[in-house]
């Protein structure tokens, strides 16, 4: 895929990486190990996979409001996705990225795309987000 067709930017920045399309939304708290970037939610179909360095495609947010802290910690440790692509805005996830940016100057862009665009992304393909 070339440049991603973005509907709205929630956290601005440029990123390129292999897409990881989540089959189900993931709660970062209780579902992601910040130290390793691995999915640890026993209920999640992609349990055990690593989200580190991916363009993580997750339609909506899920679960605990502690997700912001876990994401910020993963960004600090370098285990976070390189960017996230969502269908609906999720303030709890966005806040993890904002906090990491404010504290460490590390940017993890988050963009919204249409349902059609999202459906067209397959795991493993390279996705590029352009900073506008």
């Amino acid at each position: 895929m070339a440049e991603l067709e973005v509907e709205r930017t929630l956290v601005a920045g440029a990123a390129t990486g292999p897409a990881l399309v989540l089959d189900e939304p993931l709660s970062f708290w209780g579902g992601l190990e910040a130290e390793t970037g691995r999915i640890t939610d026993a209920h999640h179909p992609q349990m055990g996979e690593s989200i580190t360095g991916t363009v993580l495609v997750m339609a909506v947010g899920r679960g605990s409001s502690s997700a912001s802290s876990v994401l910020a910690e993963a960004i600090r440790l370098g285990t976070a996705p390189t960017a996230m692509v969502m269908r609906e805005p999720d303030e709890i996830i966005v806040l993890g990225a904002i906090a990491a940016e404010e504290l460490y100057g590390l940017t993890m862009p988050i963009v919204l795309v249409s349902a059609e665009t999202m459906a067209g992304i397959t795991t493993g393909e390279s996705v590029t987000i352009v900073d506008r």
Partner: peptide
């Protein structure tokens, strides 16, 4: 303000109280 922009809020509004979850330790960032 950044969250207000994400939520596409027209303005801020005052609140009468808050409950904080950030006091649970999840690592250095918090």
């Amino acid at each position: 303000v950044r969250v207000a922009e994400v939520m596409q809020a027209p303005r801020l509004r005052s609140i009468t109280g808050a409950h904080i979850d950030s006091c649970l330790y999840h690592g250095t960032a918090g």
